[in-house]
Amino acid sequence: MERGNRIIYNQDGKIILQTGETTGDVSGHDTITELHYLDVEYGSIDYNKQHIESINPITKELVLKDIPVILTDEQKRLKALEEELSMLKEENKNRDSEIVNTAFEVVNMKLNNNI
């Protein structure tokens, strides 16, 4: 099927949107009986994580859909390594403070004994 370009324009003739021409497995344009608009505040949606699926015509609210995060094998391995490192840091937190305390004691002893 071939579908022509649909142009949406404002009251002054300024073009707001063009669909462009297309061919192949596409459906025709929907019949428009009313046009509405909704202004979305800048920065209110993280378009890397979500996209606008539609607008609820009754409530005039956005219907957002999460974009699935598909990790590469490298990203999965990196995430596993980061989690392992975090666990090791947590396990060794007490040990690190013991090392610092011991080092502090050694320095104090040297200072107090003029070594």
Rank of each mutant, 00 (worst) to 15 (best):
M1R: 09
G4P: 03
R6K: 13
R6P: 03
I7R: 08
Y9F: 15
N10T: 01
Q11F: 04
Q11H: 08
D12K: 10
G13R: 01
K14D: 10
I16P: 10
T19D: 07
G20Q: 07
E21G: 09
E21S: 14
T22F: 06
G24K: 02
G24D: 02
D25K: 14
V26R: 03
S27D: 14
S27A: 12
H29G: 07
H29W: 10
H29A: 11
H29E: 04
D30V: 12
D30C: 10
T31V: 13
T31C: 07
T31R: 09
I32Q: 08
H36P: 00
H36T: 02
Y37V: 03
D39L: 11
D39Q: 08
D39H: 08
V40P: 10
V40Y: 05
V40T: 07
E41K: 15
G43T: 04
G43R: 03
G43E: 04
D46N: 15
D46T: 06
K49L: 15
Q50S: 12
E53S: 14
E53Y: 09
N56K: 05
N56F: 03
T59R: 08
K60C: 08
K60Q: 14
K60T: 08
K60P: 05
E61A: 10
V63N: 10
L64T: 01
V69Q: 13
I70S: 04
I70G: 00
I70C: 01
L71K: 15
L71Y: 08
D73H: 05
E74N: 06
Q75D: 05
K76M: 05
L78S: 02
L78N: 13
A80T: 03
A80H: 03
E83R: 02
E83C: 00
E84S: 11
S86Q: 12
M87D: 14
K89P: 05
E90C: 00
E91L: 06
E91F: 03
N92Q: 10
K93C: 06
N94L: 07
D96F: 12
D96S: 09
S97R: 14
S97P: 02
E98V: 09
E98N: 13
E98T: 08
T102N: 09
A103Y: 06
E105T: 11
V106F: 03
N108R: 12
N108E: 14
M109H: 13
K110R: 11
L111P: 00
